[in-house]
Nucleic acid binder design. Structure first.
Lengths: 229, 229
DNA sequence: CAATTATCTTAGGCTAGCCTAAATACTTAG
DNA sequence: CTAAGTATTTAGGCTAGCCTAAGATAATTG
């Protein structure tokens, strides 16, 4: 009974998450990614990663290029899908923030769940409703439908060379508590900052719009990306 | 490694679908539902249903009351969850239709996928945005947050006793092609109809707002629920 | 009421995606 | 260049949810 093995789009939630993680970890240079790095990022055992990579590589068309012990990178098809999911993610975040008035620190987790299940129509409609935005509420840029994504030229506040004046380009979306902290300090994409690096690996900031200066720990600073103003 | 078996809310997509199906099939009288009926509705083999029912019954707290060979009905907990998912479904449908301008025949499938994954916050926000609607775009009533759902007193156009004037209360949401047809004929919740039952098991309708009368097959008529006007 | 038929359950398998433990392959220090 | 150490893969298991085939129970009917 039931010969209906609907296999229309064989991408599962789990596959999506692997592809997204590879995209994120391979960085703008598209370097190959190690199993352990993936395992850490995804919260699974390294053996599970190896297993999945073998599947991703032997899919037809393959989602990744993978050779034993040499790490993995996305194939064109895998990259296509990863960017599609990333686009979904960031559009949904923008939508939750702009249209449904979600607090910014809650948009990521919600988008993380929904991104795998929305249709092309849903994507198209929220994009239209939002006026085809180029950036999500964290300042990350939203891949275009054709899959192109301009590289952002910014650096982490944590790797700052010297002091100076900067504009916040983006903030990390993955830690809700951190994000709440940043919000409380008025730090968001577009904020102007005057930064001094203190000897104790802390960062002394003076946000233009804020009355008093503040001190950020390294962990917090690393969640903020800046460009010079 | 990894002792983190996050089991916060053990309800899976599949469980949700079983509970929803039981709710739908048991009708307003909350009669018990047979395995085969469930199997047909869910598109799975009867054996799979039996299997799942055993799991649902032995969950703690149980989701269903189930005795071998005697069908199944929802436990209070199962009913709570089923109504929650139904509320999600209908709110999402309304949202897609009202806010995202989806064509009505597409809202069901989209809602069917998303209903399992939205958070309480998402639910609350779309409900607020929509003004806490009582009915979805098909005319089905949306269960309240507390789980109460008023019974709708209507009957299917297909089981009509005699001719007369009626108001469309609701249309079935499960068949997109059918829904498209009804839309083309201008039949939607609230439409006024003058109905004549023809000898060949067809229905001759004259919609108040439509220029000419039309003829509906039994299969189409059974997707329309009416009350006298 | 017994026999046929229809419905339902049990038994045994399959795949996806995870796990642990053990083996193997790279890497690096001595 | 070898030994220790780290990274990765293989092997073997587990659960969820589906399947088919076959057995058991209930319902129908002569």
């Amino acid at each position: 009974m039931m010969a209906s093995n609907r296999q229309v789009n064989s991408n599962t939630e789990s596959v999506d998450n692997y592809l997204k993680a590879i995209l994120a970890l391979s960085g703008p240079e598209e370097q190959s990614v190690s199993s352990t790095a993936l395992a850490r990022r995804l919260g699974v055992a390294p053996a599970s990663v190896t297993n999945m990579l073998q599947k991703l590589a032997s899919a037809r068309p393959p989602n990744v290029e993978y050779e034993k012990h040499r790490g993995v990178r996305l194939s064109p098809e895998g990259k296509r899908r990863a960017l599609e999911v990333l686009r979904h993610h960031r559009l949904i975040e923008t939508f939750l923030y702009e249209i449904l008035d979600f607090p910014i620190e809650e948009v990521h987790d919600e988008a993380e769940r929904l991104e795998h299940f929305i249709s092309e129509r849903f994507e198209e409609r929220i994009a239209a409703k939002l006026g085809h935005p180029k950036f999500d509420p964290h300042g990350h840029c939203i891949p275009a439908m054709n899959g192109r994504m301009p590289k952002q030229r910014s650096k982490s506040l944590a790797n700052l060379d010297g002091d100076g004046d900067f504009v916040v380009e983006s903030v990390s979306d993955r830690d809700s508590a951190l994000l709440k902290q940043l919000k409380a300090h008025g730090i968001a994409p577009g904020s102007r900052l005057r930064v001094t690096k203190s000897p104790q690996e802390e960062f002394i900031l003076k946000a233009t719009r804020q009355p008093k200066s503040l001190r950020l720990a390294l962990s917090v600073a690393s969640a903020v990306r800046i460009r010079s103003s």
